[in-house]
Amino acid sequence: MSVRSAVNGFFFEPVPLGRVAAMRFLAGLYVWIEWWAYMPFIFGHRFVPGELYQPLFVGRVLPLPTPTYWLVTGTLIVMLAAAVPMMFGYRPKLFGWILFAAYFEWMVIANSYGKVDHASFGFMTLLLVLCLMPSHAKWGDREHLSERAGWGFKLVQIAVVLTYFLSAWAKFRYGGFDWANSGVFTWAIIRRGTVFSDWMLDFPWLLHVAQWGMIAFELLTPVVLFVYKWKRVQYAIVAFFYCFHLTVFLAIGISFLPHLVAMACFLPLERIDPKAILRRLKDRRRAEPPKAREPEPQFDA
């Protein structure tokens, strides 16, 4: 196999169109959940004075306007309105671009007040590539394969992996080996620990090992990209990623929800067909024998 064919096979691995429809639905659903359940503080920025706005680099280059009450509210309305038709496959490219533009502004607003999150990097990439996917994608479609969809989802997968890998790089960039040898996990548990993690404070050596383990985990995540020919192995690694985030959530309450949505593009979601599931449920109900009616008790006059 030549290098060129190997590269093409990696970047343009055909993906069933059913996965595109499923990811559109998940992306739109998350947008509706985020603003009130996951990051409600973003909507609260409509009340923040403009002097506190410190735009990200991209916000200064474009340039984007300083958030006001009506700008934040209008961005949210456009974002939610565009998410609905896109998630149900109605003109998904048109509404996908509208959603991407609104969500882009939404993220600039979210990250321009002193705190920058990296959990949405993969999700932003997902919204962008969904605008480029075939419009005729349908739930449960396993027959029609698309190299364009494979290329787009590969970009999302790379963004997901870079979220981990560059996180490790940032730790070394700003803290060196001191981050791994520090008490950062101890501080995190003291600040936002739960019943599942408070007991670890009695074992500082365990937290020290966990910090080194996290760095090793983040540096090794690119492996998931290169086992694409062995799907069961890849699915097992992705399942480990989800278990890792579940553990973090139970320990300190951090969920990385948009990252988890983007990571779903690794999974064979084309196997899910809501219409087929409803059809099976109806057939099962029809096949069930009618329950025998109990005789009514007789009373002597």
Rank of each mutant, 00 (worst) to 15 (best):
F104D: 05
G140M: 03
P289G: 03
S2T: 08
R279C: 06
M124H: 02
F123N: 06
F241H: 12
L269N: 03
R280T: 15
F57R: 07
D117E: 13
I190E: 11
A149L: 08
V48Q: 04
V61N: 04
M39N: 09
L269D: 04
M263S: 13
E294I: 08
W106D: 03
P204F: 05
P40A: 00
P85A: 09
L207W: 02
L52V: 01
L132M: 14
K231L: 00
F244Q: 02
G175E: 14
T66F: 00
V84S: 11
L281P: 10
R60A: 06
A276N: 08
K171W: 01
R280C: 15
L80H: 03
T221M: 14
P290F: 08
F240Q: 10
A216L: 13
L281V: 13
P65F: 04
A137I: 01
G28C: 08
R46P: 06
P258S: 10
F41W: 14
W151R: 13
V15E: 11
I190P: 01
L201S: 06
F43C: 01
L155G: 12
C265G: 00
K115M: 07
N181K: 08
L71F: 09
L162E: 09
A6D: 12
I189P: 04
F177Q: 10
L71N: 06
R19D: 02
A27M: 07
L56R: 08
A292M: 15
Y103D: 12
T247Y: 03
E288A: 13
R279F: 08
